[in-house]
Write a protein that binds this DNA or RNA. Structure first.
Ligand SMILES: [Zn+2]
Length: 257
DNA sequence: AGCGGTGTTTAGGG
DNA sequence: CCCCTAAACACCGC
């Protein structure tokens, strides 16, 4: 599920309810998370994000790092309400937080504060020259390059297709074949599209939900993702689906060269 | 019923 | 290195 806009949405909502709140008790439900020590007594000091990774700093100086992967979701719930596939439950003064995750790919680590990442986050202003430099000698499809979290942190399968459609670039093209003007488009549009998606509180395709089980709105603004066979909004040609590195990829053969 | 598809990341092999 | 595949897991729809 969550790419940058969805994780950002959760961060914003979580800040309002857990920052400066103490964990009264923690309950590990899924044995895969049994490495987590008890968290009772710790207070959450901040909630931040880099790419798709969420980081809480705690009052004892340690950090909790969450990677929600495909289906991880946080829900703020009434007492004794338990969603399906709950893996972790945290009781706060003032409420209860549950990590629900049907496919159980999400990870949670208690660790020292991570070193600042050298990788730009997708909501930062991206430098076209830096992208071009990173793409030198990379022959992989530009779509895979954009989804590589060591390039830009936060772009996933949905937004990669959207960015390349808006930029008019064929997702199959080798990353090293792009011209400077094309990197400029990608840099500007990546940030713009991710910002717009944040404003829409993310994309609720399949079943992404926010902290209060509300859905996002960006799925209505998707131009190509999931729209195989539909007419392109720009040129009316039929949108095609191809598989790149095992992932569904949607593009317009007319607008994207 | 079985197969292909689903937002992510990682290890491993060619 | 570089890049793809498979696997981690559960579910849904055809
Ligand atoms: Zn088009």
């Amino acid at each position: 599920m969550p790419e940058l806009p969805e994780v950002e949405t959760l961060c914003r909502q979580l800040r309002e309810v857990i920052v400066d709140r103490q964990v009264l008790s923690s309950h590990v439900i899924d044995p895969k998370l049994e490495h987590l020590p008890p968290l009772a007594g710790k207070t959450v000091r901040s909630v931040s994000r880099h790419g798709k990774k969420m980081v809480w700093t705690l009052s004892d100086g340690m950090c909790l790092v969450f990677q929600l992967r495909m289906t991880g979701r946080f829900f703020w719930l009434e007492k004794d309400e338990m969603p399906p596939h709950a893996r972790l439950e945290l009781f706060f003064r003032g409420g209860r937080l549950v990590l629900s995750d049907p496919r159980r790919f999400a990870t949670v680590q208690l660790c020292s504060p991570p070193a600042p990442s050298p990788v730009p986050d997708g909501l930062e202003k991206l430098e076209p020259r830096r992208l071009a430099e990173a793409a030198r000698r990379r022959r992989l499809p530009v779509k895979s390059f954009l989804m590589d979290q060591k390039t830009v942190a936060g772009i996933g399968n949905i937004y990669a297709s959207e960015i390349l459609h808006e930029a008019g670039i064929d997702p199959m093209r080798p990353a090293c074949s792009l011209e400077p003007a094309e990197w400029k488009k990608i840099a500007a549009l990546s940030t713009r599209i991710l910002e717009k998606a944040v404003k829409s509180r993310g994309t609720s395709i399949s079943d992404w939900r926010d902290l209060y089980a509300g859905h996002g709105e960006y799925q209505r603004q998707l131009r190509v993702y999931g729209r195989k066979g539909e007419p392109c909004a720009k040129c009316r040609r039929e949108i095609r689906r191809v598989v790149i590195a095992g992932r569904s990829t949607f593009f317009c053969p007319e607008c994207q060269k």
